[in-house]
C-alpha cells in the first residue's frame, strides 16, 4: 500500500466514523478541535482501523492516536510491524 493510498483510506474511515465530510479530515484533526471525536468514537476508530487494515493495535498504539496525522504514523508502523513478522 502506498502512503497516499493509506492516507486516503484513513480519511474515508475517519469521515465515516466521525460522521464528517472528508474535507474536514485534516492532519491536525484531534479531539480538542473536533467535538465528534469523543472517547467512544475513539474506540470505534480503533475498531475500524483493526478491521480495515487487519492490524491489531496495542493499547499503547491506540492511545497514541491523538491527531489524524498520528493515526497515519501509528497505522504505518503497525502495518510495517505486521509485514516484518
Amino acid at each position: 500500500m502506498t502512503p497516499d493510498n493509506l492516507t486516503e483510506q484513513l480519511k474515508m474511515l475517519f469521515a465515516t466514523v466521525l460522521e464528517l465530510p472528508v474535507d474536514r479530515i485534516t492532519p491536525e484533526l484531534c479531539p480538542d478541535n473536533c467535538a465528534e471525536w469523543d472517547s467512544l468514537r475513539h474506540i470505534h476508530l480503533v475498531s475500524a482501523i483493526d478491521e480495515t487494515f487487519e492490524v491489531t493495535l496495542t493499547f499503547e498504539q491506540q492511545i497514541e492516536i491523538m491527531t489524524f496525522d498520528l493515526a497515519i504514523d501509528v497505522v504505518t508502523e503497525a502495518l510495517n510491524g505486521a509485514s516484518a513478522e
Binding site: 474511515l13 465515516t16 466514523v17 460522521e19 470505534h44 475498531s47 475500524a48 478491521e51 480495515t52
Partner: peptide
C-alpha cells in the same frame, strides 16, 4: 459486518 459498514449504514 464491520464497524465501518454499520457506521456507514447508520447514516
Amino acid at each position: 459486518p464491520t464497524t465501518l459498514t454499520y457506521m456507514g449504514f447508520k447514516a
